[in-house]
Amino acid sequence: MLRKKFFNVGFVGVDVADRAPFGLTALARYPLFPPEFVDFVRAVVPADRHDTLVYSVVLTARNPIVREGGS
């Protein structure tokens, strides 16, 4: 979905440079999220997803030099 948004605005060569699971342990590192919020997420999300709530990704892409692929 995010990759498609890159293509839609004109980027080319969209690639995933890094991808890692982001779970409750990672969430709890951030002072933006108080302990009660982390506990709330722990209670609401099934235990089998606690280590992979979402994924952290690094996406790379570039602007075409000219109209690459065009005539």
């Binding site: 440079a17 999220f33 999300v45 979402v54 990704v57 996406l59 892409a61 570039r62 602007n63």
Partner: peptide, 27 residues
């Protein structure tokens, strides 16, 4: 970005939806 310029973004993406109670939580 100039022609040929690059973008490199780190962000969080879902592999499957999270419960609605979380998504609508301001935190």
């Amino acid at each position: 970005l100039r022609p040929g310029g690059r973008v490199c973004l780190a962000d969080l993406v879902l592999s499957e939806n999270l419960p609605e109670e979380i998504v609508k939580n301001p935190t």
